[in-house]
Design a protein around this nucleic acid. Sequence first.
DNA 1: TCTATATCTGAACAGATATTCAGATATTTA
DNA 2: TAAATATCTGAATATCTGTTCAGATATAGA
Lengths: 139, 139
Amino acid sequence: MAKQNRPEQQQSQAPDALNCEVRLVDLNIVRKVQPEILPMPEAQRMAEFFGVLADPNRLRLLSALANQELCVCDLAAGLKMGDSAVSHQLRILRAMRLVKYRKEGRNVYYSLADGHVINLYREVVDHLQETGSSSMGVE
Amino acid sequence: MAKQNRPEQQQSQAPDALNCEVRLVDLNIVRKVQPEILPMPEAQRMAEFFGVLADPNRLRLLSALANQELCVCDLAAGLKMGDSAVSHQLRILRAMRLVKYRKEGRNVYYSLADGHVINLYREVVDHLQETGSSSMGVE
DNA sequence: TCTATATCTGAACAGATATTCAGATATTTA
DNA sequence: TAAATATCTGAATATCTGTTCAGATATAGA
């Protein structure tokens, strides 16, 4: 951790800094890098968002809604999931505003909220196709 | 679950289907939706990818690497994390091919693997800015 | 009103995940 | 060679997450 290797320019500047618990070279780099680092609150918000997409069943729900609105029980039937599980997942998607819904009688029809999800989807498909090993059957 | 409400066109087609455990209307919709649903293996792969981005410290690591390559101990110092934690997280980013690395002496310098991450980043920032409640200080 | 249906909700459990700790490996320097 | 440093790794622990289950709410139809 002491980072005494990697000789850099300003070691002559403050000789006593070498005895300090904070090392000189670290400080220079850290000072440069720190402001570029995503602050923790925003990082958490972003992580929370990605976390919503980090579940195969939620992704499948989104893909089912990509072309038409569907109610909970159709989604459950189509994905072969329990109604309750679908409802729980839809709530998470709703909280992140990835889907919107509309009530009609006792049915609730869900649909995608905007195009961001699709864009994300394609970007990830690109990445996985280029780097990954499997194929992703997406046009 | 029986979906006897929502009267649809083809109920006259097969009257005995009403006694079947699989309901008619469900079947029609499910048959239409099924092929559009992301298959489970690909959904899992994609979810795994998003899961890698679903951690605030990994996002912070990526943001630190967005402008320059950095070694493990500088990342640890900059993010105020333990060396071991950083190393563990970098391994995950490496496995998903989001970062690449280069050894130099006893240091290992990491950098972003390609531009997909940045694109994803911006897309999410857009989404969060439009729908979310907080501001994300990204240009 | 009563029944069936669609959806939602909270609790509980199993499985996944991030960090810490201790220690291993590799490289540089004395 | 020995000591110091940078990085990595596996085990252990605490936390988070997804599903199921039981039951609540709401709406449509008899």
